[in-house]
Structure formats: structure tokens, C-alpha cells
Write a protein that binds this DNA or RNA. Structure first.
Length: 412
DNA sequence: TCTGGGGTCCTAGGACCC
DNA sequence: TCTGGGGTCCTAGGACCC
């Protein structure tokens, strides 16, 4: 039996949402991601800006050189999440099997929905019109028998189009496309394939499976499947809508200017650890492992992990261990560009285990949840552990001499 | 041109266990 | 004296995606 998979991809999502809030941006060159002289990269560019060679992942300063008249906006993640949620609700009306693959794209399993929504193309058209009517946003839709082909089809359909690849012609559809179009084939893999004289998916499909496997291992084998339009390998062959808990939760920060200031580093680490701890509690998860990420001025990056004797969701544990890892591994003669805190190896809340430490963990957990609620009401800086607080002010004063403690505006 | 932030998955070696 | 084979966990790094 053939599956019918839709891949719905929002067109220039961030830019389009920004236009809803500021119609003056319409039709202009818009770059979302930050100011034109900041460290950072482009999150999204309007079609107008793309004409000048601006695209996502491009350094902002480069984007400015290519397109100095573009309007640079910092971006509003809350707005994107909100609209993403709205789109999700619409998609749910078309199929119970919906999976948001990221904030601006989703897979739907539409197998067997003909009685309800009609043939695939008509269903897609209705879906497209409904999204437009309810959100004023454009999307593109790919329809195929696998996630892989549906995704590539939606890409080919852009902007604002619908493309269906009929069952049986997947390989013919893929054949003329560059290998880079295959999700998972990036710069490095593309180069490796080019070195073998493989430029198009047809070249890949013509190759012997064993050759690919001996050359690239399991990935090569998956690649051979993909060249034929199959959902081969890892994430892709999972059922749609069956994504469970996250596998990792992390936060990181790149400094405006690299720093050797231990106080600033510790304060940042505390802040990051608090954000991570908070999200662990929101998900009801405890982390077995935490990892510190450290990037020096020259962009060289190291990661150092610690595994806890028993999994934790407490800020203090994350703060303490991340500090130990920092001091054990940082070459303090070198300035740091980025710090990150990541957690993984999750276990679910299981209630009463923490009686073992005389209720210490339980009291901490309750205090932290109270703090989380205060942050919701009064903003991120309303509550902090002692040293995080002091350090935070220091950093703010350093980066903006006018900033004073206690002047943080209320959210909303 | 000087490279964000949040993720996923894979590899490869070593420890450790049976 | 010359040492297996498999499974699992841990760590570090890297490719890739949006």
C-alpha cells in the first residue's frame, strides 16, 4: 500500500511573520537575524534580499556588504512559535498524523483521507487556501509516497506552490537533481561525491549499493536508498507524528567581544545553566549527562562532559558542574568567544525517589519552580541565584554602560 | 565575509562486563 | 604467555538541518 505524505513548508516564514506586524516591510529587502554590524548570521532573508545573494546562515556583516539598503530586524521567536502553533492547528484538521519538523515545516500522513478531503491534490489545495485565509501566510506543499520525496518536492514547488510526485515515478523525478538536494547531503558529502564524479541523483542511483557502503559506511547505504526515493536511515523512516521527548536540551551564548574575565564567564555559565534547568523542569526530565562547550577566539571548539551519579534537573548541579568543567579545561590565557551548556541522557520524573537525600532535592525543586513562575511574570532577570545575579549586572554594564541594575523592563 | 542558536544523528575508541 | 567476542556506556568531535 502506498503512503501519501504531505510536506508543508512555510515560504520565507520569519520574514512573512515580520511583515504581518509591520506591513511597511512588504516587498522590501528584509534580513532577519540581527543588526548589520553584529556578530551572528542571517536567519531568513526576503526574496527581494535574496536577489543580492543574501541567504540564511550568511554572516550579518557580509549580508550588509551585499545589500546595504536591506532592513535588518532582530527577529521575534515568540511570534514565530505562535504562528507555528496556528499552522499546526490547521494541519491537524486535515490529518491526525502531523509532525512539526521545525518551526516552519511539517509532515502530514494523508494516507486514507480521500473520503474526507478528496484526492491528494485537491486536499493540498484546500489546505493551502486554509493556511492563507487563517494566517495570511504562504506555504508550499510537496506530495509523495515518502517523507524524503515530499520534502524535495515542496522545495521544488517554492514559492507558494504545490507539487505532487506520483507513486512509481520518484526515481525519475529525483534523477536530474543535484545530490545536494538530498536532505543530509551538505558541503562535505557533496564534495566527496563530486570527487567520485557523482553530481546528480541519477549518478547516485546508478551506482552499486556496495560501493557506496564500502566508501561511506551506513550513511552510504542510506544514501543509496534515498537516491531511489526511499525514507532510508535514522529519523526519516519513523512514523509521522511519533516524536517523543527531546534527546538533548542546551543553551549557548556568543559574546559580543571575546573575554577572559572569569567573573563574566561564570555569570554567563550560571545564566545558561539556569535556562537549561528550567526547561528540564518544564519537560519533567532529569539529565544524566551535562556538557560544557567552549569556543576560543580562533573558533577552535572543545566539549567536555560530566555524567552525574544520579540524574538531575537542578540548577545548582548544572551550575556547579559547568564551573568545574570550565576551570578544569579553560586555558585562561586565551579569550573565549562562546560558552554552552548541554544536557542529555534523559529520564522522566519519578516522584518520590528524592526522599533519599532528606528532601533536599524536593525543596530545591519547589523553590526553582516558584522562581520559574516569577520569571514568567516579571521577566528573565527577576530571579537569579546569587552569583548569577552579580555577574549578570557586570556583563550588562560592560556591554552597555548605560544599563543599571533594576531597570530591566517588564515583559509584555 | 569571519562564522548564531537549537537541535539530530553518526563515528570511533576505551572502559567494563560476561 | 599472548591474549575472544559481543554488548553497552561514556566521551569527543563532526556533519548536517532550520
Amino acid at each position: 500500500m502506498n503512503r501519501t505524505v504531505f510536506h508543508v513548508d512555510m515560504d520565507a516564514f520569519f520574514v512573512s511573520v515580520e511583515e504581518l506586524f509591520d506591513p511597511a516591510l512588504k516587498g522590501k529587502a528584509v534580513v532577519v537575524g540581527g543588526k548589520s554590524d553584529e556578530r551572528g548570521v542571517v536567519s531568513a532573508a526576503s526574496y527581494e534580499a535574496r536577489k543580492f545573494g543574501v541567504h540564511s546562515a550568511l554572516p550579518l556583516r557580509t549580508a550588509y556588504k551585499l545589500c546595504p539598503h536591506a532592513i535588518f530586524v532582530p527577529g521575534h521567536p515568540e511570534r514565530y512559535r505562535e504562528y507555528s502553533g496556528r499552522v499546526f492547528e490547521i494541519l491537524r484538521r486535515f490529518s491526525p498524523l502531523v509532525e512539526m519538523a521545525s518551526v516552519d515545516e511539517a509532515y502530514l500522513d494523508m494516507t486514507g483521507t480521500e473520503r474526507l478531503h478528496g484526492p491528494a491534490l485537491r486536499a493540498a489545495d484546500t489546505l493551502h487556501e486554509t493556511v492563507k485565509a487563517d494566517t495570511k501566510l504562504n506555504c508550499s506543499i510537496g506530495i509523495a509516497s515518502s517523507r524524503l520525496v515530499a520534502k524535495i518536492a515542496s522545495d521544488q514547488a517554492k514559492p507558494n506552490g504545490i507539487l505532487r510526485v506520483l507513486p512509481g515515478v520518484e526515481a525519475r523525478f529525483l534523477a536530474p537533481l543535484e545530490v545536494r538536494k538530498i536532505p543530509g547531503v551538505g558541503k562535505v558529502m557533496e564534495k566527496n561525491l563530486h570527487a567520485l564524479g557523482i553530481r546528480r541523483i541519477a549518478d547516485l542511483a546508478a551506482l552499486d549499493e556496495d560501493v557506496l557502503e564500502s566508501r561511506f559506511g551506513r550513511w552510504g547505504l542510506a544514501l543509496a536508498g534515498k537516491a531511489h526515493g526511499l525514507d532510508a536511515g535514522g529519523w526519516f523512516d519513523a512514523e509521522i507524528g511519533e516524536r517523543g521527548d527531546p534527546k538533548s536540551i542546551s543553551h549557548e551564548h556568543t559574546f559580543n567581544t571575546d573575554t577572559k574575565d572569569a567573573g563574566q564567564l561564570e555569570a554567563t555559565l550560571t545564566h545558561l545553566a539556569e535556562k537549561v534547568g528550567r526547561r528540564l523542569r518544564e519537560h519533567g526530565l532529569h539529565a544524566r549527562t551535562m556538557q560544557l562547550k567552549l569556543r576560543y577566539s580562533d573558533f577552535s571548539t572543545i566539549t567536555r562532559a560530566h555524567t552525574f551519579a544520579s540524574p538531575t534537573q537542578l540548577d545548582i548541579d548544572l551550575v556547579e558542574q559547568s564551573r568545574k568543567l570550565l576551570h578544569a579545561n579553560w586555558d585562561s590565557r586565551r579569550a573565549i568567544r562562546l560558552l554552552g551548556v548541554q544536557t542529555s541522557g534523559f529520564e522522566h520524573d519519578q516522584g518520590q525517589l528524592d526522599l533519599m537525600d532528606g528532601g533536599r532535592s524536593e525543596r530545591w525543586r519547589q523553590a526553582l519552580e516558584a522562581a520559574d513562575r516569577l520569571r514568567d511574570r516579571f521577566g528573565e532577570s527577576a530571579v537569579a541565584l546569587g552569583s548569577g545575579m552579580r555577574g549578570r549586572y557586570r556583563e550588562r554594564v560592560q556591554e552597555n554602560p548605560a544599563a543599571l541594575p533594576g531597570k530591566e523592563p517588564r515583559k509584555k
